[in-house]
């Protein structure tokens, strides 16, 4: 791993990203439309409006949630 990179997990998948990456940048790099998913970092909700300011850290677990049918 390059010194300026960190490893984060997106829905369980390990990814190497620049250490200065934001959550918004991560989603953009994966072509995930900002309003199509809800996001959490390490189990805590991150609002759409807060993703740009959400600086990723080594080992972060990013989880995305989508709307589905339900009872």
């Amino acid at each position: 791993m390059k010194p300026d990179q960190i490893t984060v997990h997106l829905n369980g998948e390990a990814l190497e990203v620049a250490s200065s990456s934001s959550l918004a940048a991560l989603l953009e790099s994966r072509d995930i439309a900002a309003d199509s998913m809800a996001s959490a970092r390490n189990g805590e909700f991150v609002a759409r409006s807060a993703r740009s300011a959400c600086q990723l850290a080594e080992g972060d677990e990013i989880t995305l949630f989508m709307p589905i049918v339900g009872g």
């Binding site: 829905n11 369980g12 998948e13 998913m37 809800a38 989880t63 995305l64 949630f65 989508m66 709307p67 589905i68 049918v69 339900g70 009872g71």
Partner: peptide
Amino acid sequence: TVGLKRTLA
């Protein structure tokens, strides 16, 4: 009623 689920590939 609707739901949410954790996204998988």
